[in-house]
Simulated assay, not measured.
Amino acid sequence: MFNGNVLIADQGKITFEKNYGLANEETGQKLDNNTVFELASISKQFTAMGIVLLEKQGKLKYDDNISKYIPELSFYGNISIRNLLNHTNGLPDYIKIFEEKWDKTKIATNQDIVNLLVQYQPKPVFQPGEKYEYSDTGYTVLALIIEKVSGKTFGQFLKESIFKPLKMENTFVYRRRFETKEIKNYALGYITDSSGHKILPDSLGKEFYTYYLDGIVGDGTVNSTTEDLLKWDRALYTDKLINSRDKELIFNSVKTKNGEETQYGFGWFIGNSKKYGKIVYHSGGWPGYSTFIERHLDNDKTIIILQNTSDTKINAALQQVRMIMYH
C-alpha cells in the first residue's frame, strides 16, 4: 500500500517519523531516515527561492521580461520572471513538444527546451497574466535564468545559496542518467507494470520520457530526505535566507488580470482552512516518485511524505493525519 518515509513535526519537534518498505527491491535495502528521494515538483520551491535570492542581490527584478536573459524567447512577448514563478506565463508544455519532436537517443537539457521552442514556435496557451495554468516549462526557464545570472550551474547555485547554509547535507540536484554518481542511500523509484510487478522506469528503455528528459532541471531533480526538508521548513520561519517582504511574495496567492485567485505563490500552493488556518504545500509526481510537503503557517505544523513508488494516492491519509495533528 505504501513505500516511503513520513515525518510529522509540531513547532519543529518531530512527533512522528517512520520508514515503510525498501529503498532497493533488488538488494532488499530498507529505507531509513537518511534515504534520499527525488522530490519531483517539490523542487520548484527551491528554484523559486534561487530567484528570490538573486532578486535580493539586485541581480534581477521580478518584473524583468524573460527575453532580457533569454533573448531567443522574445517572440513570446512580455512574459516576466514573476509570470514564470506563479504559473501565469502561458508557455506551452515542453514535455509534449519533446514527445513529438525530440531525438529520444539524446538526453535533453534546459537549453534544448529553448531551442525547440525557437525552432517550432508553438503558440502561447494564453497571454501573460491572463490565466493561471501550472507550468513545468516556466520553472525550467527559471532554472536557466538562475544559471545565466549567477554564472553557476543550477545545482551549484542551490548548493551554495541554500543547501550549505541550511546544513541540508543530503540535498542536491541529481540527474541519475545524465550525470551518474554513486549515492549510497538512495531510494530507487518504482512504477507498476501491467501485471502488477514493481519495475524501474529505465526498464522501459530510452523511448520513455524519464530517460530523455533527465538532463532538465528546475521543475524537478532536487533530491532530499525528510529530515533535510524539516531543516528547510524551520529555516523558512526565520530570516536566515529571506525577510518578511520576501515571504509575503512566496506564501501569498496572486490574482490573474481578471481578478481570479491563482492559489499559488512563488513555488508553493496556498490554502486557507477554517479549521487549520493558512496552509502552504506542494506535491511532486514523476515516474517512481510521489512526494508531498505541507506547512501550517498559523499553527507551525509540518507534514513531509516521500514515496519511491508513484501509484499510492495519499489524499485520504492526509485528511486523517491533519485530524490527528489537531486532536
Rank of each mutant, 00 (worst) to 15 (best):
D93S: 07
Y69L: 03
G90V: 00
N65W: 04
T88A: 02
R82W: 00
N89I: 02
Y69T: 04
S80T: 15
I70W: 13
K68I: 07
G77K: 12
D63H: 15
K68L: 02
P92H: 03
D63Q: 15
E72T: 11
G90I: 02
L84W: 09
I81E: 02
K96I: 00
L85T: 01
N83M: 11
N89L: 06
N86G: 00
G77H: 13
P71T: 02
D63M: 14
N86T: 06
P92W: 11
D63T: 14
H87A: 05
I97E: 08
G77R: 15
S67I: 08
N89E: 13
L91C: 02
N89S: 15
K68Q: 06
I95W: 09
S80Q: 13
I95R: 12
L73W: 13
I66Y: 12
Y76G: 11
S74Q: 14
L84F: 09
N89G: 13
N83W: 12
E72N: 14
Y94N: 05
K96D: 12
I66Q: 09
P71L: 11
I79F: 14
I95P: 00
Y76H: 13
S67E: 11
K96A: 04
L84P: 06
T88R: 03
N89M: 07
Y76V: 10
N83I: 12
I70C: 05
Y69D: 01
N83G: 06
P71A: 04
I97V: 03
Y94L: 08
Y76L: 11
L85K: 06
I66D: 02
P92I: 07
Y94V: 01
S74D: 11
S67A: 15
N83V: 06
I66F: 09
I97W: 05
I66H: 09
T88K: 02
K96E: 03
I66K: 13
I79T: 13
F75A: 13
L73T: 10
N89W: 09
I81K: 09
